[in-house]
């Protein structure tokens, strides 16, 4: 469990995090996007810029989704970063949406019939689309007003779709890869760990009071 010196550290981290404005997370979150656009404009993305753009956008979407799903487990350890979860989730959605747009335009070159065939036949394309569609209602209900309108219980239930999006995203990545690379294994391991942590029993009020 938590060592004697840890509460001090966690308190300091919590104190530091309280001073970080949420806009800073949005600001830092779009830095990779700016780099990508800059790289494309200055022709610095290598021999196959389309693949780089598409892959990087998808990778960032997955990374922000994973980051947003670490907030709750970290909270159980006492580190409270809940203020930043919305920003991380919206950044994940933004990158996934641009990833989809890059596939439609740059990769597939607007070949609609081929894309329709892929959406019907190709599990990796289907799973990618499932992941995007799962994130769509979450982005749409991300405002405070939406939480108030829905009520916290229904809102929380809807937002469990993030787990579905994570599973779809990981399978999408694994199916795309020709071999099981270290990168794929790390993402899948991390994803499974985060999902597994949700299965642990929730800490009770009694325990918190005792601590």
């Amino acid at each position: 469990m938590v060592s004697a010196g840890a509460p001090g550290l966690i308190d300091r981290l919590n104190g530091g995090a309280r001073r970080v404005p949420t806009w800073a997370v949005y600001g830092l979150g779009i830095v990779p996007f700016v780099f990508l656009v800059w790289g494309a404009v200055t022709d610095n993305l290598g021999v196959d810029p389309v693949k780089v753009i598409e892959h990087r956008l998808g990778e960032l979407g997955l990374q922000f989704l994973i980051a947003s799903l670490t907030i709750t487990p970290l909270r159980r350890l006492g580190l409270n970063l809940i203020r930043f979860r919305r920003a991380l989730g919206l950044l994940a959605f933004g990158y996934v949406a641009f990833h989809l747009a890059a596939w439609v335009t740059l990769d597939m070159g607007l070949r609609w019939s081929e894309m329709a065939a892929d959406l019907w036949k190709r599990p990796y394309v289907i799973l990618g689309m499932v992941g995007f569609l799962a994130l769509l209602p979450l982005a749409a209900t991300s405002s405070n007003a939406a939480i108030r309108r829905m009520g916290p219980v229904a809102w929380g239930r809807l937002h469990r779709l993030a787990y579905a999006a994570l599973v779809a995203g990981l399978l999408h990545l694994a199916l795309l890869s020709k071999v099981w690379s270290t990168e794929v294994l790390v993402y899948c391991g991390l994803g499974l760990l985060l999902l597994g942590l949700r299965l642990l029993p929730k800490p009770t009020v009694r325990k918190r009071a005792a601590a």
Binding site: V47, D48, K51, R111, E114, A117, D118, K121, R122, Y124
Partner: peptide, 12 residues
């Protein structure tokens, strides 16, 4: 089995 071979992207 996982992707279409109907078309190709021209690298470069």
């Amino acid at each position: 089995p996982r992707w279409s071979q109907a078309s190709e992207r021209v690298v470069g």
